[in-house]
Design a protein around this nucleic acid. Structure first.
Lengths: 159, 159
DNA sequence: CGTATTTCAGCCTTACTGAAATTG
DNA sequence: CCAATTTCAGTAAGGCTGAAATAC
């Protein structure tokens, strides 16, 4: 029941074996996170905060618990993010009229304006990152990464 | 000086805009890191420890400072990793004969055996992750991710 | 003296679990 | 009573900077 391996042959006489895909994926994400952090810091945003704002632009009115599920973190962790965003006036949290306990999270106009600026910065970094790849390859890279996420059982990919 | 954007059109009348590549890359790395952590935990290894062992298999005898540079972290952070590995007998650290201050890090036979078992677990997870991708697409995914790392200015990709 | 390595100490970010209060 | 949400508290992992000792 030998499962065919995806590894290239190791220990060939010439050259180094190919680095593991997990390793390169981790390295890419690490480098990207560093660059994004540097770009977002002058705007007063952390990467998790930017991600939460991006989700809210399209899913305005989510509760803190719903936001946490989208980000695959616990509600307790998401609280630290939303608290920071609320303190800066980028979001407001209003009680749901039908469910007194639930606080609906809404993007403020200041939050929307900051998000536009942040998106421009992130676009520039993505363009840097992808400058060697053709448009077709960029599309394929996105599709392949989505497939990886699905196969890893991480649920939805959409923001 | 409009730079052509790599973003798909947002806000079309039908359907959702494609999620951002940064987002999907981060989601893939997050899901992978979780799965790897779960697989390595029964072996008593953390992901950073596994990475350090993998580097040492091919670059045996690196100093702690050299290991840190390979992993793009500070020597102070790497010390916490190598200390843990040494306490478990997976590595030994011997003074360099020519430089009394430098400690060369060597994989022990126990460390090598554990690394073989860990590799099998990681292979299985990578196979899960890539099961929808053809062999050609896997190779292209690896190459494209390497290109991303280079373009992000993160230095070498090789372990 | 300058550079590199090692390592102690303290701190920060970001996640986690546990537990309690509120609401439907 | 049960389920979901919110949120306070404590904890842990993993990174960081500063600083000191050692060695060439």
């Amino acid at each position: 029941m030998a499962r065919p391996s995806n590894r290239r042959t190791r220990g060939g006489v010439t050259g180094h074996p190919a680095p593991r895909l997990s390793y390169v994926l981790g390295r890419a994400e690490f480098a990207l996170r560093r660059r994004l952090g540097e770009a977002l810091s002058p705007l007063g945003l952390t990467l998790p905060q930017y991600t939460a704002l991006s989700v809210l632009r399209r899913r305005d009115g989510l509760s803190n618990a719903q936001l946490a599920r989208r980000a695959l973190i616990t509600p307790q962790s998401m609280i630290t993010i939303t608290t920071g965003l609320e303190r800066k006036g980028l979001i407001t949290r209003v009680p749901d009229p039908a469910h007194g306990r639930i606080l609906r999270t809404l993007l403020t106009s200041a939050g929307d304006r900051l998000l536009v600026a942040a998106d421009a910065a992130v676009d520039a970094i993505e363009d840097d990152m992808l400058q060697e790849l053709s448009s077709a390859n960029r599309g394929r890279l996105l599709d392949d990464l989505k497939s990886c996420v699905r196969m890893l059982g991480a649920g939805f990919v959409d923001i």
